[in-house]
Amino acid sequence: MLKILKYSFFDLIRSRWSYVYFAFYLLLGVVLLFLNNDLSKAVITLMNVIIVLVPLIGTIFGVMYYYNSKEFTELLLAQPLKRSSIFLGQYLGVAMSLSMSLILGLGIPFVFYGLFKSNAIWDFSLLLITGTFLTFIFTALAFNIALSNDNKIKGFGYAILLWLLLAIIYDGVFLMSLIFFEDYPLDKLSLIGTMLNPIDLSRTLILLKLDISALLGYTGAIFKQFFGTSFGLIISFIMLIIWVILPVMRIMFKSRKKDF
């Protein structure tokens, strides 16, 4: 698996798209920091970018990589290699190269800006950690979609749909149901609702840093325990890890059964 990972990773970090992705983040970081000169605002804008764009790029890139390397995968399948290690290797290769573009692209301008001397370093690290988690989650979901759909067009369609669903539609439905059931105690429901969507989960994690003052305005005891203590942070991270593990397990399961 490590060998596959190594070669996928090297293949990808030399691909044009990795550079585009890297350059995009670099540019974003530079524009936010040096043209705006306001670190707090930059962190807030970055958060919006990360929770929307990272999942989109992760899904599209994951699906694209899978379909593009289909024949190569077949070549690998004929080698004395375990199926799970082929797919895990490729998955990790994609996820890691994307994460690296993200971390370096945003990290470099921030380091030049003097991040290490700033107290925003924790907010910023949290952003990068969340971004990395989202990359791993959505690349895994993309591989799942691609593994289940041999038709490229369909695969891309589902990928975009998945992103739309989790990034926007889910929150819409979530909001409507909260308003609809407002007469009932909702804090448990709303926290569970958040856990079930990795984008919301990441958003909450960042909210814990950026908007804790607002979050603590709510009365519910469970809310208070969740946001007021490190409990929320720990649970969120555990859930994010589960969100990585589950799709990865499905990749392994699905790949074992699949015909090529």
């Binding site: 929150d171 308003i179 919301d200 305005g217 709510y218 809310f223």
Partner: peptide, 10 residues
């Protein structure tokens, strides 16, 4: 409770 959707794209 909708505070949990703060900064959501929706």
């Amino acid at each position: 409770e909708t505070i949990i959707l703060l900064r959501s794209m929706f």
